[in-house]
């Protein structure tokens, strides 16, 4: 399922993102590699500060200075895009790569009608007249499930609920028919009851258009429902990547094990949720060796000095010396 005939839509290889500060260079993303194929949804999980959103921002070329890419490469459908000049990268955004952000309440310009925002995006990227673009905008609103789209197209963002606004944001992300969508915590700001609708919609639309999705979230529930594969990030590195069932049910890396164990389950009532002790290291005080070793329950002597590479572990890949020897279980 991970190797269709065509090449990957997105290929990230050894990506490094750093912030140059007065106290030296802080490496926030350190050698991240992954690929996403057409129609595939890759979930990226990890706790806050693991570098998930930063990876997404690097792919769409919207890193906030002083953050910048200092190593590795990003390829979109085989074409290298991390070194494109700003104007070409701008033309790519929205056209080839769509984006969905966390908070639908603040993603839309409050002063413009939603129809105008969609039309302006379409006309930026596609050679269409105002009327054609408006017809397409209406089509999109219907496709994302906005009821009474013919009248709603002329409404302002504040006249929509959070879930409806996220549908509009999805319509905006899809309007020029991109190959890839970066969805950064698309459901985090929504009510739980709405979350499933939005992830369901995203999944359906991407299947239909064979759009690849990089789904950044810290919600394992969303990953389990939506993603095909999942990458677990910790301290700026991918520590485990593999098919979603495999990583959820048979996590190899001790961090993934801890992450899965901390998911509350409705079926099995636990007296208390398990948690991973300690917190993620700060960028300016990265431990030597494996970044997770100070918190790791199964730390070996070599973990404190050597950094494990991402090696096959079962049908997934994990960056852990322990996992390479004996599989761990939640």
């Amino acid at each position: 399922m991970t190797a269709p005939a065509a090449g990957p839509v997105l290929e990230v290889r050894d990506l490094e993102v750093a912030f140059d500060t007065r106290h030296g260079r802080l490496r926030a993303i350190d050698g991240v590699s992954f690929a996403i194929h057409p129609g595939e949804i890759l979930g990226v999980v990890g706790e806050s500060g693991a570098g998930k959103s930063l990876t997404g921002a690097a792919v769409i070329g919207l890193l906030e200075p002083p953050g910048r890419i200092v190593g590795g490469e990003i390829r979109l459908a085989g074409r290298r895009i991390d070194d494109l000049p700003p104007a070409q990268m701008r033309a790519l955004r929205g056209r080839e790569i769509g984006a969905i952000f966390q908070d639908p309440l603040t993603s839309l310009n409050p002063l413009l009608r939603i129809g105008d925002q969609i039309v302006e995006t379409i006309r930026t990227h596609l050679p269409m007249s105002d009327r054609e673009a408006r017809a397409k905008a209406l089509e999109l609103l219907v496709a994302v499930g906005i009821p009474a789209a013919e009248t709603r197209i002329d409404h302002y963002p504040h006249q929509f609920s959070g879930g409806m606004r996220q549908r509009v944001v999805i319509a905006l992300a899809l309007c020029a028919g991109p190959k890839l969508i970066i969805a950064d915590e698309p459901t985090t700001a929504l009510d739980v009851s709405i979350q499933a609708q939005i992830t369901g919609l995203l999944k359906r639309l991407c299947r239909e258009h064979r759009t690849a999705v990089m789904l950044v979230t810290h919600d394992m529930g969303v990953i389990a429902e939506t993603a095909d594969r999942v990458a677990v990030m910790y301290a700026g590195r991918v520590v485990e990547i593999g098919p979603v069932d495999e990583v959820i049910h048979r996590p190899r890396h001790p961090y993934s094990v801890g992450l899965m164990a901390s998911i509350p389950s409705v079926r099995h009532r636990a007296a208390s949720l398990r948690q991973i002790d300690g917190s993620m290291p700060r960028l300016d005080s990265m431990p030597t060796g494996c970044a997770f070793h100070p918190r790791c329950p199964r730390c070996l002597p070599r973990c404190t000095s050597e950094r494990p590479a991402l090696e096959p572990a079962g049908i997934a890949r994990a960056a852990c010396f322990v996992a390479a020897e004996a599989p761990a279980h939640a």
Binding site: R90, R93, G94, S107, L108, N109, P110, L112, E120, L172
Partner: peptide
């Protein structure tokens, strides 16, 4: 966020600055 999103939609700088930012 909406300016960031406008950039993510690939709008031209002029549009982002004058249509979206200045108006707000």
């Amino acid at each position: 966020d909406f300016i960031r999103f406008a950039r993510a939609r690939g709008l031209r700088d002029r549009t982002v600055h004058f249509r979206h930012a200045l108006q707000n």
